[in-house]
Write a protein that binds this DNA or RNA. Structure first.
Length: 691
DNA sequence: AGAGTGGGCCTTTTT
DNA sequence: GGCCCACTCT
């Protein structure tokens, strides 16, 4: 095998790419010198992605084979962004390059090595909803008295179990430190966790955490496999390293154990995944784990105006457990970020729509604008407004296409074709039938256990109760049709063309839309020849928009996104909405250890997405049954007012009929402007109007 | 054992 | 505003 000794002074004159011209000194150093273990501390907008992409291009130019390079990112979005940029830089995607999220890389490897750890290569992947429903079955099976004490919901249980596994802690430790109210139940939760493990194994299924954990275990226990892979991956590049957890770091360590060419890039100020057990110490301790690691810093910000950076810098400075560092602006001075109080969500939405249209008139493309929010459901009011005004937008966050109920129904059917042991899929498929509930479904699953194919399932003599007879027959008819198809799209149509169609019509008022969705889904599936590849894509990329039509990516649409999903992206104009106390920072997050600082980092991520225009908006009233007065987010209140352009809107009257309080006056604190408002009756509405 | 209905609940973030 | 759960009826 060839070794490449890279040095400082290359002859770059023969290069296709003008590295010196297209990179600054900070970036160029990384691209040329990041041989061996290297840590790049890169601030927001400092050209992190650019640097990684050029490093990949550089390695390829130097003769490293694409299949010897592993490029790991955190989210699908980042992964696509990265591969797109590599592709545009090189003219074509380098064939054989290993690029993807941790989960997708792990999946790819486990499809090969699963038999070594007691799974088949056809194992199913459970998404969090699948996991929750399996946990529900486990709780039921254990005959836990969920009524006596307040027992955690399946979602909570999954949260606990998952956190424990991702952080390498025991359930007991996690419950004690993060969920002390359940501490008496530790024992029971342990049992749920154990049963959950058993059931997954029996179903030949892995959840998201398993993809990482099983790979990690394999790398630690099977030296032959580890050496083979570690030998293959001569160069490993990891993006967003601040968001990796212990397990992910271990995987990287093992894969890098031979060549030690591991380049990790990250920014501690943008660590926003601690709820998923992200471990900030991975990045902070990197130089310790890798002796002789080089450290690089990228602090020049090419993205945002100085005014925007002032806000971001001032905000992040309030955090104490961070490296103190300031982003250096190079962009010319522009306008100050706009601080916009609105009377309510509707006015907030109207304001945004107006500004969007105004910006578009002045030449900013819709695709260069984004609205960011803390939680997916915050966007509802805005969506109404945008639809009303025919402003096209692309929504990112919340329920993804592949997570919609009817799509999951179909996916569950298809999963059975590949893995008839998939208990979770069976539960879902059987549960669709009238007369079949949890109990009957379990009985049927017991009777078909061990069947290796749908044909074998259909050959089984299955006894069901009187009530469930028709349902089971109907299910059998659908499965029978599926035995005659092999292509993903045909399998989907075998289901949707049959009795499932009647089910959708009967079950959902909006069945037309849903049937359209399913046809879309079948069209999407036509791009796949192999069922397993198709299912992998569906399970690991819940967001279909970007998969479906790349063309819409460039079309004229603005983006609505959660902040988490916006990480790594940038726009000319960014609106951060719902900056209201309790919403952002999120009240629940604040209860967690380090929660406030993480929320602030989230705010930091949000503001640093903007190049020129930044709008920070908040409605001062909210609520749905009762009218509630909200305080502006503390992230706004803690900053000096002169950092902002204080926008004053004419306050619209609040359209509410019910009002529920004993107080007759309320003090509105609108960023320091205190106003007493009489709330005895309608005068309150006028009061807001005149604020 | 399931289905249907009314009431209470709560809303984080991703793979 | 919608979802989930518990309760009751079949």
């Amino acid at each position: 095998m060839k070794e490449f000794i890279l040095q400082d002074n290359f002859d770059l004159s023969t290069s296709q790419i003008d590295f010196k011209k297209q990179l600054n000194d900070e970036q160029l150093k990384v691209v040329l010198n990041a041989e061996g273990p290297a840590l790049v501390l890169a601030g927001a907008g400092s050209g992190k992605t650019r640097t990684i992409t050029y490093r990949v291009a550089f390695l390829l130019e130097r003769g490293v084979s694409a299949e010897n390079i592993l490029l790991v990112t955190f989210t699908n979005k980042a992964s696509r962004e990265m591969t797109a940029r590599v592709e545009s830089l090189l003219g074509a995607y380098p064939k054989g390059l290993w690029g993807g999220t941790f989960h997708s890389i792990a999946n790819r490897l486990l499809r090969v090595y699963a038999p070594k750890i007691g799974f088949t290569s056809n194992f199913s992947i459970l998404d969090s909803e699948d996991s929750k429903s399996l946990i529900k079955v486990c709780v039921k099976d254990l005959n836990i008295d969920t009524g006596a004490k307040r027992f955690p919901s399946p979602a909570k249980l999954l949260g606990i179990i998952s956190y424990a596994r991702n952080s390498g802690q025991t359930i007991q430790t996690v419950v004690e430190s993060r969920y002390p109210s359940f501490s008496e139940l530790t024992h029971v939760i342990d049992r749920v966790g154990d049963l959950y493990e058993l059931r997954k194994r029996a179903a030949d299924a892995m959840d998201f955490d398993d993809l990482l954990l099983k790979l990690k275990d394999l790398l630690y226990t099977d030296a032959a496999v580890r050496d083979r892979l570690a030998n293959q991956f001569q160069y490993i590049l990891v993006d967003e390293y601040q968001d990796t957890n212990v397990v992910q770091a271990q995987i990287i360590n093992q894969l890098a154990s031979i060549h030690k060419n591991v380049l990790v890039v990250g920014d501690d100020a943008q660590s926003i995944y601690s709820f998923r057990a992200a471990e900030i110490r991975n990045i902070l301790g990197f130089p310790k784990s890798y002796k002789g690691a080089k450290t690089f810093k990228l602090v020049t910000n090419y993205r945002s105006s100085p005014e925007i950076l002032s806000v971001a810098n001032a905000s992040i400075l309030k955090n104490t457990t961070q490296f103190k560092k300031e982003l250096e602006p190079v962009r010319p001075s522009f306008e100050r970020p706009n601080l916009v109080p609105a009377s309510n969500q509707r006015q907030e939405a109207e304001y945004i729509a107006q500004q969007v249209l105004a910006l578009r008139d002045k030449g900013t493309k819709l695709s260069e604008m984004a609205v960011l929010f803390r939680a997916a459901f915050h966007s509802q009011a805005l969506e109404f407004e945008l639809m009303k005004r025919d402003i096209p937008y692309e929504y990112r966050g919340g329920l993804k296409f592949f997570e919609r109920a009817h799509v999951k129904d179909i996916v569950s059917h298809v999963r059975l074709k590949v893995n008839p042991k998939d208990e979770v899929a069976w539960m879902r498929v059987l549960g669709l039938q009238t007369g079949v509930g949890l109990v009957t479904a379990q009985k049927i699953i017991k009777q078909i256990a061990g069947a290796a194919s749908l044909e074998e399932v259909l050959a089984r003599e299955v006894k069901v109760g009187k009530r469930a007879g028709a349902g089971w027959e109907s299910c059998r008819r659908t499965l029978h049709k599926m035995t005659m198809e092999e292509l993903p799209a045909d399998l989907i149509r075998a289901v949707t063309g049959g009795e499932y169609r009647d089910y959708v019509e009967a079950e959902y008022p909006d069945f037309m839309d849903r049937l359209d969705d399913l046809e879309q889904f079948a069209l999407f599936a036509e791009g796949y020849k192999e069922v397993r590849t198709f299912l992998d894509e569906v399970s690991l990329t819940s967001d279909y928009g970007a998969v479906r039509d790349e063309s819409s990516y460039e079309s004229e649409k603005m983006v609505l996104s959660t902040i988490h999903q916006a990480k790594g992206l940038e726009w000319d104009a960014v609106f951060v909405i719902n900056l209201v106390d309790g919403k952002f920072p999120n009240g629940r997050a604040l209860e967690e250890r380090g929660g406030l600082e993480e929320e602030r980092r989230l705010f930091y991520v949000a503001t640093t997405r903007a190049r020129k225009h930044l709008f920070l908006t908040y409605p001062i009233t909210g609520g749905y049954d009762t009218l509630t007065i909200s305080q502006p987010s503390m992230f706004l209140q803690e900053l000096p007012g002169d950092l902002f352009e204080q926008v004053r809107l004419k306050r619209a009257a609040v359209q509410r009929s019910s009002w529920d309080t004993d107080e007759s006056t309320i003090v509105l604190d609108d960023l320091g402007e205190r106003t007493e408002v009489d709330v005895s009756g309608l005068s309150f509405l006028r009061g807001v109007d005149e604020l």
